[in-house]
């Protein structure tokens, strides 16, 4: 019965876990997902009614925006790249610095961020005629319904040995082996949901963004950011928390040289010494992680 209800609300595509950690206080329902979908596109959630959640998380771009960093109301430039909001129902930490522990908590923060939507919860509640907790639950439910799966990789893993080209299969071998990618990009969602310092924030001897450290105050967390999913990655350029890498080739080159050396560099990063052919194969494999995106 419960399975039937769940399937009625969201269909889990090939490649993703059947189990999604939905909080008991906010069970999925068709009504909530639909309300969340409307709120997600509702520009009344921003002070000047100029932007909605979908402005930075465009359903046509796998719920990312194609810009290096997010743009808020009044053309305010944010600090970080708008992450692709796919498969976040499986997440354990939210935002690039992992500062939110639940989706219910996460969805309300951009609304209140002065550089994003700049509203108070009271104001937005009055505008849409819903109490904040209902807005939170509906938006979180909708985000849980945004799923990407059934990619060529998924079909390959599930028995269709022709779903990946020989070059992509070679890329998969690099991904799992010499590339050491699975040290962080693990599991069906290609993320360990943990933070790592890959050196991206390190420029000219200092951190441009403290990352996780700004949340925890821990020196070890300086410059550390959450591992993003790699699903739909071909459609979510530019890359990294600051959008500083424009192409997948650029990303692969960066990791091949072991990242930017800095005092808190993650021990998983080291020069990979990939050949040109291996780099091409790896990029070809990454492109095979695009599938069908639900929730659009």
């Amino acid at each position: 019965m419960v399975l039937w209800l769940l399937l009625l609300v969201i269909a889990i595509p090939l490649g993703l876990d059947l189990y999604m950690p939905v909080p008991e206080g906010n069970p999925l329902s068709v009504e909530k997902v639909e309300l969340g979908r409307r709120l997600f596109r509702d520009r009344r959630l921003s002070r000047d009614r100029s932007i909605a959640c979908s402005s930075c998380h465009d359903p046509e771009r796998a719920f990312s925006d194609g810009r290096p960093v997010a743009i808020g109301i009044a053309r305010q430039v944010g600090r970080r790249n708008a992450p692709a909001l796919i498969n976040r129902g499986y997440g354990r930490a939210f935002f690039w610095d992992g500062r939110a522990a639940t989706l219910e908590e996460q969805v309300l923060q951009p609304i209140q961020d002065p550089k994003e939507m700049d509203m108070t919860l009271g104001e937005v509640s009055e505008r849409v005629g819903l109490p904040p907790h209902e807005i939170s639950r509906a938006l979180a439910s909708y985000v849980r319904a945004i799923l990407s799966g059934n990619s060529r990789f998924d079909r390959f893993v599930n028995g269709d040995r022709r779903a990946l080209s020989p070059e992509q299969q070679e890329g998969l071998r690099v991904f799992r082996g010499k590339g050491n990618c699975t040290s962080c990009h693990v599991g069906p969602n290609f993320t360990d949901e943990r933070v790592h310092n890959t050196g991206i924030a390190w420029r000219d001897g200092s951190f441009l963004d403290e990352g996780r450290s700004a949340v925890t105050g821990q020196l070890a967390d300086r410059g550390a950011f959450k591992t993003p999913t790699l699903r739909e990655i071909a459609r979510t350029a530019p890359y990294m928390h600051d959008g500083s890498r424009l192409s997948l080739e650029d990303v692969v080159e960066y990791y091949d040289r072991g990242g930017n050396a800095n005092p808190a560099l993650d021990s998983e990063l080291r020069p990979l010494k990939l050949t040109a052919s291996e780099k091409r194969s790896l990029v070809a494999f990454l492109r095979a992680l695009s599938g069908t995106v639900s929730g659009r």
């Binding site: 059947l18 189990y19 693990v186 069906p188």
Partner: peptide, 10 residues
């Protein structure tokens, strides 16, 4: 048919 319930990393 294989149905994956939960991925448990390593």
């Amino acid at each position: 048919t294989l149905r994956v319930l939960k991925s448990i990393e390593w």
